[in-house]
Amino acid sequence: MAKQIKITLTKGLVNSNIKQRENVRSLGLHKIGQSVTREDTAVYRGMVNKVRHLVTVEEVD
């Protein structure tokens, strides 16, 4: 079974640019405090890296 990461939106998207908003939406996040669990792949890691100042990431077993 692949590792999982838990991604939580911690800051709002008011002053972010369009690409950052699209990345957050693609991750499946809509509201501040919302969390999603995704597989730990290079694709999701890259998306999280682009918005690392807006989200927090935890590894889940």
Rank of each mutant, 00 (worst) to 15 (best):
M1Y: 09
M1F: 09
A2R: 02
A2C: 06
Q4K: 15
Q4P: 01
Q4A: 10
I5T: 01
I5C: 05
K6A: 10
K6V: 04
K6W: 07
K6T: 01
T8G: 00
L9I: 01
L9M: 07
L9E: 02
K11A: 05
G12Q: 09
G12P: 01
L13M: 11
V14L: 13
V14I: 13
N15A: 12
S16P: 04
S16M: 15
N17M: 09
N17C: 05
N17D: 15
N17Q: 09
I18P: 10
I18T: 13
I18K: 13
K19W: 12
Q20T: 05
Q20C: 09
Q20R: 10
R21E: 15
R21G: 08
E22G: 08
N23F: 14
V24F: 12
R25L: 08
S26F: 05
S26T: 07
L27D: 08
G28Y: 08
G28F: 10
L29K: 03
L29A: 11
H30K: 14
K31R: 12
K31Q: 14
I32R: 01
G33M: 03
G33K: 10
G33F: 13
G33N: 03
G33T: 05
Q34A: 02
Q34P: 00
Q34K: 00
S35V: 03
V36Q: 05
V36M: 04
V36H: 09
T37F: 14
T37I: 14
R38P: 03
R38G: 00
E39S: 11
D40E: 00
D40S: 12
T41A: 15
A42P: 14
Y44E: 00
Y44L: 04
Y44K: 09
R45L: 06
G46R: 14
G46D: 00
G46T: 00
G46W: 00
M47I: 14
M47Q: 07
M47P: 06
V48L: 13
N49S: 09
K50L: 13
K50S: 11
K50T: 13
K50P: 03
V51M: 01
R52A: 09
R52E: 03
R52W: 11
H53I: 11
H53E: 05
L54M: 14
L54C: 04
V55G: 01
T56A: 07
T56C: 07
T56E: 15
V57P: 11
V57I: 15
V57E: 00
V57Q: 03
E58Y: 01
E59S: 06
E59I: 06
E59K: 06
V60N: 15
V60E: 12
D61H: 05
D61N: 03
D61I: 01
D61C: 01
